[in-house]
């Protein structure tokens, strides 16, 4: 039998971003992204238990179906965080494998929402970050109407 150095591969692109989703989250988030172009953060509210989801979701954990869009503020509170930089795909050494400057990733609960989103916290030393710290969204100069508009926060 012929020995091959590499396994057989099939030509073609596997582009996730081109996948079409029927899942309703994407449609709901699309509405939020549109609103973000006007500096508004839109979540949705469950009619049964009142939980406000930001980002919006099609189903509530009480099994209600959030149907009303409500505005949440661009200030919020850190609920959890970590500091990256020590972790690399190839290994766990502190120096090698670290990807650039350490980033502070945090779960941020924006005021008016009951749920959290992930943001990078900037303009602060890792030692000074903590759960409970107040932050404000850094709106980019040029809004794209995408999740990246929502990805950076700064201490309030």
């Amino acid at each position: 039998m012929e020995y091959k150095e590499v396994t057989t591969s099939i030509d073609g692109a596997w582009n996730f971003s081109k996948w079409e989703w029927k899942f309703e989250s994407i449609a709901l988030i699309g509405r939020t992204f549109e609103a973000m172009k006007e500096h508004k953060l839109l979540g949705n509210k469950c009619p049964d238990c009142g939980t406000v989801y930001f980002l919006p979701k099609p189903f509530c954990r009480c099994l209600g179906m959030p149907d009303e869009f409500v505005e949440v503020k661009d200030t919020g509170t850190i609920t959890t965080y970590t500091v990256t930089g020590a972790w690399g795909y190839e290994g766990i050494t502190e120096e090698e494998g670290a990807q650039g400057e350490p980033l502070i990733f945090a779960g941020v609960q924006f005021d008016g929402a009951d749920t959290k989103v992930v943001c990078v916290v900037e303009d602060v030393e890792p030692e000074k970050v903590g759960v409970g710290m107040r932050v404000k969204l850094k709106w980019p100069d040029k809004l794209e109407g995408a999740i990246t508009d929502l990805s950076r926060c700064t201490p309030l």
Partner: peptide, 19 residues
Amino acid sequence: AAAQFKMGVDPGFIAAFGG
């Protein structure tokens, strides 16, 4: 991850977020 790519999330962001 696939859904996040669809939303425009940078793969580098997901990698740094913590694998």
